[in-house]
């Protein structure tokens, strides 16, 4: 799903995804501030391990993505964090292929960036815990929802054979989006209370 294996996508989609991922990672690394490195590494580690928690949904299975939370906390730094974690997941656990690394990275990192750009600025001026909770809720929904749409787009662009199953793919992301929205909201609310400077505007 979010980890598309080798041999599913067509060459143009793989190359396009690879180029886009390379560009995003370059920008992400350039904008990575020194003070941000520890939390980038910690969230990369959390994302790396979170994929092991698997939730069966109907005939398929999903796992937490946490890209909404990564977008809120890390901003652009989420891109290199996601790339490193995906590479390690492919190498150690066999989740996703190496040729699809670029596409998978885009599918997870672009929604994280969207969250960072749309919701990040709102959170920075937000000290009220309940409002932060709502922003976290939106971040979780947006992160998973956009990933689901991008996975469907990657599959649909690769071949018409995948189109009939796309509805099922979107449906299977529904429960995950809800779970993840609650988790992201709880984390955001807590962070806003105990460590509000984590969402400081320094994360350009």
């Amino acid at each position: 799903m979010a980890h598309i294996p080798d041999g599913v996508l067509s060459a143009p989609v793989l190359i396009g995804g690879g180029l886009l991922a390379a560009g995003l990672v370059t920008v992400g690394v350039k904008r990575l501030g020194e003070a941000q490195i520890p939390q980038t590494a910690v969230l990369a580690a959390v994302f790396f391990v979170a994929s092991l928690v698997h939730i069966p949904v109907g005939p398929t299975s999903v796992h937490p993505l946490l890209n909404g939370l990564m977008g809120l906390v890390l901003g652009w730094a989420a891109v290199p964090a996601i790339l490193v974690a995906l590479l390690l997941q492919a190498a150690f656990f066999g989740f996703g292929g190496l040729t699809t690394l670029g596409v998978n990275c885009c599918n997870i990192a672009v929604p994280a960036l969207a969250v960072a750009l749309l919701l990040g600025p709102r959170l920075r001026i937000q000290q009220d815990r309940r409002r932060a909770f709502l922003i976290g809720l939106a971040a979780g929904l947006l992160g998973v929802g956009l990933t689901a749409l991008m996975v469907c787009a990657a599959l649909a662009l690769s071949g018409p054979a995948y189109v009939p199953a796309l509805g099922l793919v979107l449906l299977s992301y529904g429960p995950l989006a809800l779970v993840e929205a609650v988790v992201t909201a709880a984390a955001t609310g807590l962070l806003c209370q105990v460590k509000p400077e984590i969402f400081a505007p320094a994360h350009g």
Binding site: I37, T40, A41, F48, V49, A85, L88, F92, F93
Partner: peptide, 22 residues
């Protein structure tokens, strides 16, 4: 050991990044 290896890799990478930035 796979999980630990992955986490250690991330820590090492973070250290390298901090070194370069410093």
């Amino acid at each position: 050991r796979d999980i630990l290896g992955g986490l250690a890799f991330i820590i090492g990478l973070a250290g390298t990044a901090a070194w370069v930035k410093a």
